Amino acid sequence: MDDDTSGGPAADYLTGIGLLGIDHVGVAVPDLDAAIEFHQRVFGMRCVHTETNPEQGVREAMLRVGPTPDGAEIQLLAPLTPDSTIARFLHRRGPGLQQIAYLVADVDAACAALRERGVKLLYETPRRGTAGSRVNFVHPRDTGGVLVELVQKA
Score class of each variant (00 low, 15 high):
2 D>V: 01
4 D>R: 04
5 T>Y: 04
5 T>C: 00
9 P>V: 04
12 D>P: 01
13 Y>H: 08
18 G>Y: 09
18 G>M: 13
19 L>P: 03
22 I>D: 00
24 H>T: 01
25 V>Y: 04
25 V>I: 15
27 V>A: 00
29 V>T: 08
31 D>L: 04
32 L>A: 05
33 D>L: 03
34 A>Y: 05
38 F>I: 02
39 H>L: 13
48 V>W: 01
49 H>C: 04
51 E>H: 02
51 E>W: 02
55 E>Y: 05
56 Q>L: 12
58 V>I: 07
59 R>E: 10
65 V>C: 08
65 V>S: 03
69 P>D: 13
71 G>R: 10
72 A>K: 00
75 Q>Y: 05
75 Q>D: 07
77 L>G: 04
81 T>W: 09
85 T>Q: 15
90 L>M: 14
90 L>F: 14
97 L>D: 08
100 I>C: 15
104 V>D: 08
107 V>W: 15
109 A>H: 02
109 A>I: 04
112 A>R: 09
114 L>C: 05
115 R>A: 09
116 E>T: 06
117 R>W: 06
119 V>T: 07
120 K>A: 11
120 K>L: 08
121 L>M: 08
121 L>W: 15
121 L>D: 10
122 L>M: 14
124 E>T: 13
126 P>H: 08
127 R>E: 15
129 G>S: 14
131 A>G: 14
135 V>Y: 10
138 V>P: 01
138 V>F: 02
138 V>I: 15
141 R>W: 09
141 R>K: 10
143 T>G: 08
146 V>F: 05
148 V>S: 04
149 E>T: 11
150 L>A: 05
151 V>S: 11
152 Q>E: 11
152 Q>K: 10
152 Q>W: 10
153 K>W: 12
154 A>L: 13
